[in-house]
Write a protein that binds this DNA or RNA. Structure first.
Lengths: 153, 153
DNA sequence: TCATTTAGTTAGCCTAGCTAAGTATATTAT
DNA sequence: ATAATATACTTAGCTAGGCTAACTAAATGA
């Protein structure tokens, strides 16, 4: 019985509301599962997420980063402060508008992301590899649509 | 690892590692988006999630609930305490083993779940309704597999 | 009987999120 | 030119979720 959900559901949802509900629930549990297996790799998920945007999105203002990360300005200030304290990113103030702060990855930050990301999602990847190909394929085909939802399109 | 939001991607992932990465990222952003739209209506996500297990899974021990929710015992103690303080669940100690505590929903808890939960996911449901039917279907077909991954099967 | 295991709680810590209010810089209107 | 307003970010202070370590109480078993 360990590991057994109290609510096993194997049928696809058949109303949009049920779909939303189950997607929501699955997201919560997915992240909790990953967080628990994360410990070795270093940064907490939100910091890693922000770092990833910074590394891939180049220098970015704090405001844009907050929007990309779907959080309020004070939250991004704090996340960036934590990353900066670890030497993974640095602030650069804009020359033309001195209110604006750009943030960019240091080489250490970029390196940590490259190395750490695979480790962090390794357990999820392993679980996905354990699925029948058809089910893994179903998830793969759903991901672009999920990203669209997340971006609010 | 997340972070694809700075660069929208519309292609399905073609390696398992990339799939894991993007699924993870989508889950993070999905939950943040929902949290922000979670009005005064009710409980924070983790409490709602636990309440849902309790309502649908009947009376359940704290240990089993912790497992179902993928959290450590102290966390479940705290979540249940919060739900109890709101009169949504109640503790019942087991007659045969006095260490064990079962938790069950009150009628208020069951009612709040029925009403409030749908409200909470309403914005997600609306976003899903805005998708082309094919993409919504892709997500619907992926959900059972995601639940399987989450349960660690 | 006494040691061990099991279920849950308590204490104490850290991180993530928020709002409200503050500072500094830009912009706009008078 | 200056006053009002808007923007970008920070600070302060709060709620909440997550953890480990250490505890109590009850069951099990040698």
């Amino acid at each position: 019985m360990p590991g057994r959900s109290a609510r096993p559901q194997r049928k696809p949802p058949d109303t949009t509301l049920e779909l939303a509900d189950r997607l929501h629930s699955a997201a919560i549990h997915l992240l909790r599962r990953l967080r628990r297996q994360d410990d070795a790799s270093g940064l907490p998920a939100p910091q890693l997420s922000a770092l990833s945007v910074i590394v891939f999105g180049g220098p970015i203002t704090l405001g844009d980063l907050a929007q990309a990360e779907q959080v309020r300005p004070p939250t991004i200030t704090r996340l960036v402060a934590a990353l900066e304290a670890d030497g993974l990113v640095e602030r650069v103030s804009a020359s033309d508008d001195r209110r604006v702060v750009h943030v960019q990855a240091t080489s250490r930050g970029a390196k940590l992301l490259q190395e750490g990301r695979q480790r962090r999602v390794a357990s999820l990847a392993a679980a996905l590899r354990g699925l029948p190909a058809g089910e893994r394929g179903a998830i793969a085909r759903a991901v672009p649509a999920m990203e669209k939802v997340v971006r609010g399109e």
